[in-house]
Write a protein that binds this DNA or RNA. Structure first.
Lengths: 214, 214
DNA sequence: ACCTGAACACCGTTCAAGT
DNA sequence: ACCTGAACACCGTTCAAGT
């Protein structure tokens, strides 16, 4: 597992193959099958390990549940961001490993502390997880493929493309050419996080009783 | 391109390889490089083609911008859902193909019709795209790998896992074992969509002037 | 401009055989 | 229980050669 994480951090998720990891262990790929069912399980274990880095409050403060919730989410983003494009491995899965459970338990607890129903809490944790892995994955694509230079060039190119679009055919895309390609990652993340957390909160009326939403 | 789409629909995205597509064309893999730079470009073209199936209103009705916006989003989900796990190909990319642009232009227009700033509109279209591709991808994993039976078994298994969790260690996960694994896809999708669209709308005050959000 | 066969450098996984 | 070498059935991509 340490070996797999090392390969991931050094070369990215695509390099985390049975053969590459085995090589880092000075052995052959077949040997790994004594410890792991298949490649997917290996990658899932790495993902779980990364999630174990997530920090969460030991105590839930119901008054500040939304800020605490956001902090856990920021910690998830930070953990994923520290390990290349590992977020890709989390896209289709509900993580059930030892590393992920404490953080997930905290997130569920914080959402419930917001006063929402169990149903809404379940849907919320789902969509929040989706948001965290998907944004982390997108950001990882920006940071690595080439140098930072390449990604900046790509930005300019994309903006030029939108500007070049025929105004009569795509008026709105043309209009937003600037802001659409303006990428401050931290800010984007906070915007989405704020919308989601406020959306979850808006599901509860001022008196603390759940609204009829969904 | 037709051949690639056929392979996708019949066997899923993993089967869309240079070799498989070439075979469907009764030729060798090297021949494809006369029409396409690499595999990624080929898959991206397929993705763009799928997005061309998206339906959008010819005329924006500013009064009903949110319902119109939701309808376009539903159409994106439907289009992606018709083509296996193609959504995976859309995860890290801003689509710039002929097929995707009209729908994207409509989405941007509808968000702007909601009265938000250009900045917020850009962030919103971004997060909405993230949500659409990520949910479509997750749903595609549920529908295919094995039969529907297998996915139901998996559900039960997952629920049992959460129930089996030690209550003192993971109280909230244990509590939500039921709803957390209760998957009505349509309903989940609508819940998230509603939160996002309301979140975007909440960025504008009642008088139509943008709030100071983000 | 388009196509081809052959090759290169990789994959995940299996399996008989060993300790 | 753990490891190994060799093999199988695949990959994407390149390249010289053809039309």
């Amino acid at each position: 597992m340490d070996a797999a994480l090392q390969v991931l951090d050094a070369e990215g998720l695509d390099a985390v193959t049975m053969r590459r990891v085995a090589q880092a262990l000075n052995t052959g790929p077949a040997s790994l099958y004594a410890h792991v069912a298949d490649k997917d399980e290996m990658v899932q274990l790495v993902f779980d390990r990364v999630l174990s880095e997530v920090e969460y409050p030991q105590q839930i403060d119901a008054e500040r549940w939304d800020e605490q919730l956001k902090d856990v989410c920021r910690s998830v983003r930070a953990a994923l961001g520290r390990h290349r494009d590992i977020a890709r491995a989390g896209l289709g899965n509900i993580p059930t490993g030892e590393g992920a459970l404490p953080g997930m338990n905290a997130i569920v607890g914080l959402i419930l502390a917001g006063g929402v129903s169990e149903r809404v809490a379940s849907l919320s944790v789902d969509i929040l997880g989706l948001y965290l892995t998907a944004t982390a994955y997108e950001e990882s694509l920006d940071s690595f493929p080439g140098s930072e230079k390449a990604s900046e060039d790509f930005h300019v190119e994309l903006q030029n493309f939108f500007i070049s679009l025929p105004v009569e055919k795509y008026p709105y895309l043309h209009m937003l050419a600037g802001p659409l390609t303006d990428g401050d990652g931290d800010h984007r993340f906070e915007f989405g996080l704020d919308i989601l957390v406020r959306g979850i909160a808006s599901t509860v009326q001022a008196d603390g009783r759940p609204t009829g939403v969904s």
